[in-house]
């Protein structure tokens, strides 16, 4: 996306003090995502935590849509909402999915975890703010074919500049797959 960003950061004259409608909606959805994410880790009802995760990931998809990246948005819904969280729910229901509060959901490490989360979030926010300080990306009008977030733009950037991370990720997934097979085989021999 850096190429797409770099290509369109030329515009001047934007101000934080006169936001457009899209920017206001973007910030509001962002706040909702943040709230849902906090609830995900703080609620003591296991299945509700998964559902708040759905809200957070779905909110991210809306943010992508607001940035006119339709492909990424629907892939986000399809993979994260449609597969990952469904599998989380599936795992919860296969083991135990109590209705109501789970008293053992409060970890003893929560203050350490909170500290780590704040440090990580601080680092990332600083990084992103510092990287894009006053960069404005012009979102083209809907209907035009050369959208920054179009399938073609994403494909070209992904398979030209980001091939190595892409392939490394697929190796990671393969490792996870092999690991799952190894784990399930060992269980069968014991049982």
């Amino acid at each position: 996306m850096t190429a797409a960003l770099a290509a369109s950061l030329s515009s001047q004259g934007h101000s934080f003090l006169s936001p457009t409608g899209v920017e206001i909606v973007f910030v509001l959805v962002g706040l909702a995502v943040l709230g849902a994410a906090v609830l995900t880790v703080s609620t003591s009802q296991l299945v509700h935590a998964a559902l708040w995760l759905v809200v957070a990931l779905g909110g991210l998809a809306i943010e992508y849509l607001l940035l006119t990246a339709e492909f990424i948005a629907w892939v986000q819904v399809l993979i994260y909402l449609g597969s990952v969280v469904v599998l989380v729910l599936f795992g919860l229901m296969l083991t135990r999915a109590p209705i109501g509060r789970s008293p053992d959901a409060d970890s003893g490490n929560r203050w350490v975890a909170l500290g780590l989360a704040v440090v990580a979030a601080g680092t990332l926010v600083t990084l992103v703010v510092d990287a894009f300080r006053c960069t404005w990306m012009d979102l083209p009008a809907s209907g035009s074919t050369s959208v920054n977030g179009s399938t073609q733009a994403n494909g070209e950037v992904l398979f030209r500049y980001w091939v190595l991370p892409f392939e490394a990720l697929s190796v990671l997934l393969l490792a996870a797959l092999v690991g799952a097979i190894v784990l399930s085989r060992r269980h069968r021999e014991e049982g």
Binding site: F71, W74, L78, L81, G82, S83, V86
Partner: peptide, 10 residues
């Protein structure tokens, strides 16, 4: 079609 798949998965 991704949109249709996404709606179905929700």
């Amino acid at each position: 079609l991704l949109y249709i798949l996404a709606a179905a998965s929700v």
